[in-house]
Computed example of a mutant assay.
Amino acid sequence: MREILKCGRFDLKLDGLPLVMGILNVTPDSFSDGGRYQGLEFALSRAEEMIADGVDMIDVGGESTRPGSPSVPALEELQRVMPALYALRELGKPLSVDTCKPEVMREAILAGADMINDINAFRAPGALEAVIDSDCGLCVMHMQGTPQHMQEQPVYQDVVREVIEFLRERVDTMVAAGIERARICVDPGFGFGKTIEHNYALLRHLGQIRQELALPVLAGLSRKSMIGAVIGKPVEQRLAGSLAGALASVAHGARIVRVHDVAETVDALKVWRAATAD
Rank of each mutant, 00 (worst) to 15 (best):
R2F: 08
E3Q: 14
G8Y: 11
D11L: 08
D15K: 07
L17Y: 03
P18D: 11
P18Q: 14
V20C: 11
V20F: 09
V26H: 01
P28T: 04
D29E: 09
S30G: 09
F31W: 13
G35A: 03
G35Q: 05
G39E: 15
L40Y: 06
L44V: 15
A47N: 11
E49Q: 15
M57C: 15
S64G: 13
P70Q: 09
P70M: 05
A74M: 11
L75D: 15
E76H: 09
E76N: 11
E76M: 12
L78Q: 15
L78C: 12
M82E: 07
A84K: 10
L85F: 09
Y86G: 07
E90F: 06
K93P: 03
P94I: 13
L95Q: 12
L95E: 09
K101L: 12
V104I: 12
L110N: 12
N117I: 05
I119M: 10
A121K: 12
A121N: 09
L128P: 13
D133N: 15
S134P: 11
V140F: 14
M141A: 14
G145K: 11
T146N: 12
M150V: 05
Q153F: 02
Y156A: 07
D158K: 13
T173F: 10
V175A: 14
E180P: 00
R181S: 12
A182N: 04
A182R: 15
C185F: 05
G191V: 00
G191R: 02
F192S: 01
G193T: 00
E197S: 08
N199Q: 04
A201Y: 00
H205A: 10
L206T: 07
I209C: 04
R210K: 14
E212R: 14
L215F: 07
L218N: 07
A219M: 07
L221W: 05
M226R: 04
G228C: 07
G232T: 06
K233G: 03
P234T: 06
V235D: 03
Q237I: 00
A244G: 04
A246C: 10
S249Q: 03
A251T: 01
A251Q: 11
A251P: 00
A254R: 04
I256D: 02
V259K: 00
H260M: 01
H260R: 01
A263T: 00
A263S: 04
A268F: 03
R273K: 14
A274E: 14
A274M: 14
A275W: 09
